[in-house]
Design a protein around this nucleic acid. Structure first.
Lengths: 338, 338
DNA sequence: TGAAAGTACGAAAACGATTAAGTAAATAAA
DNA sequence: TTTATTTACTTAATCGTTTTCGTACTTTCA
């Protein structure tokens, strides 16, 4: 490994001069600077991030915490797209991304915060996680620059998908297609669920829509078995809905299976809509009508805001960015004639 | 940030003693060791990975290169599961995972190898990538411990899904269901494609199966449009196949759409099979028959072998591990009576 | 011509750890 | 009792950078 010392010897200057030349400090002569850079390149010099970090206290490394219950957020349709966009954006800005170790089985493991300090992350992004985990709270209460996705903490930067407008738009879309008996199978309790549920009720009221209690049921996100059962229950109602909204696209297929099993046709006999806009939904027939969340924007905004926060901690106030999605008009919501 | 120096002062010993005590060296008295550890914990001491790496030349950090054409491998059904398993395994062993920066737009970017050296990765894993990229070759020719997934380089460790046996098993399964006119729409050229294609032909021969040239067509992986077109072409043949194999599960849905558009029923009129075993395939109706690759094993083996290589570079020879998948018997391949 | 400014570089300390080598005291062996 | 060994620590160098403070030499300006 060739170091600045090697270059300094090859050039007949001090290491200080090499450092300054490579970092374009102004107090180095043009000629020397050129020469040092040339020799450095010739010798195949690569800086050492560890020693750089040690001196400057900046790692240009961002910690990511994406942890589903069982697995990482990597296998999660929605979050993997968000993460992908986040990654692309931070890399454009010269930052790297390291996962915060979330293996909870090791005896000598560190907490999330300890791990973040250990690695010296310049900032941290959190998503797809149990936000009530004490370790998450510890991290959030720390002084590390941090951005959360789809969850709001006090005085912390957040990027959230606009679930209020999303649900409103989706419900309104369905309403405008003539549906008046609309059921909603929602996900398990969380900030996201609450936003959508509240928006669902409020929008229904605004539209003058009657929503019987039995039309609103709970399932878990991405749980096709749960939505299958809930859907069966809805279909068994004396006055079943003409349209069912699901927690997310993936789970909606469980519901659609129930509907198909009953010999009903989508969208002629009953309509369905998902939430997320996962890729495969656009490639299956009938194409899934859904609220497509803007994962590209969410990831990019989270990255930009986090980096801004890192690079000027004073001027940036904690702010929340809300990213709108849009109704993707597939073929699973049919028109009801009055 | 409390450092060893702070602890040494609080304990009235030298920093060397603190270091040795915390690292359980044998030449520190029991009492002192206990005391130092206690005080360290009380003071909230967290080691500094940068300075540790600087001295020891070990980062306990693994670089990952997962790069699809446009995006990272994060949004790739198969690879995201492999990566998830890899992550879990390395974390259990005390390693972290950092992405190798693959943003190719920055002017001052580093090559993959440069980046790996810069960050001092103890090892690198590569998958889901253009293995002919010159930068990848540079990385492969370097002396960094490295494991590739689903690709074989000379003298490099590799973990590959058993595409030969996989295709053989899948084709044999279909054959045993009575099919004799079996088409194969394969993916674009790559090591994986070649293995499967070769195995397809060889197995066909072993089974005494006639495969007309027009039954074998090329599409791209995960490209539903391509498989849609190829499927239409197959259906237009004077003597169309009774079963079509696809490049992967995702792409198979493009083919199934074509089949449905023709008013044909799966599996009664025609059968299809995918490859991968993506999660949603098991939750859609009809359940997709496919070759389920063992992503859990692939990721875990890659991690274990890489870490073994890192921890004893001498004794470990470059080896290839082949992980078998298994036929997942869904409902898309029907039985043909003789 | 002399003082003030500016330019181009170097010396050395520091970041937070590890580790080889040294040392003093206690213990064991001769 | 003397010598050898063991124990428990310390000293100091080092990893590869960055950065403050000097310093020698030039240039500028009164």
């Amino acid at each position: 490994m060739v170091s600045m010392k090697d270059i300094s010897m090859a050039c007949g200057v001090s290491v200080a001069t090499v450092s300054k030349a490579l970092n374009d400090h102004k107090d180095i002569g043009e000629g020397t600077k050129k020469r040092i850079k040339r020799i450095a390149k010739e010798m195949g010099y690569i800086p050492n991030s560890a020693s750089k970090a040690l001196k400057t206290r900046r790692t240009y490394n961002i910690g990511v915490l994406f942890t589903d219950e069982a697995r990482s957020g990597l296998t999660h349709d929605y979050f993997s797209y968000v993460l992908d966009s986040f990654k692309q954006t931070v890399e454009e800005q010269g930052y790297d991304m390291t996962f915060i170790n979330c293996c909870k089985t090791r005896a000598d493991r560190m907490s999330y915060l300890e791990h973040a300090k250990y690695r010296g992350f310049d900032g941290v992004v959190i998503a797809c996680i149990d936000f009530y985990d004490p370790e998450v709270l510890e991290l959030v209460r720390s002084s590390i620059p941090l951005v959360t996705i789809d969850h709001l903490f006090n005085n912390r930067m957040a990027v959230i998908s606009d679930n209020v407008k999303g649900m409103k738009d989706l419900l309104t879309y369905v309403y405008n297609k003539g549906h008046r008996r609309i059921a909603y199978i929602h996900g398990a309790d969380s900030a996201v669920t609450q936003s959508r549920l509240t928006s669902f009720y409020r929008t229904a009221q605004e539209l003058g829509l009657d929503v019987p209690d039995e039309y609103v049921r709970e399932a878990a996100y991405r749980d096709t078995d749960a939505t299958f059962i809930r859907t069966m229950e809805l279909l068994d109602l004396p006055n079943p809905p003409t349209c069912i909204l699901y927690p997310d696209d993936f789970a909606s297929y469980g519901g659609m299976n129930a509907i198909n099993d009953r010999g009903l046709d989508i969208p002629n006999d009953i309509s369905v809509a998902g939430y997320d806009g996962i890729r495969i939904g656009r490639h299956l027939e009938p194409q899934l009508t859904t609220l497509r969340q803007n994962t590209k924007q969410i990831g990019a905004q989270a990255a930009h805001n986090l980096i801004r926060l890192i690079e000027n901690p004073k001027t940036t106030v904690a702010q929340t960015v809300v990213i709108e999605g849009e109704v993707f008009e597939g073929k699973t919501v049919g028109t009801i004639k009055p």
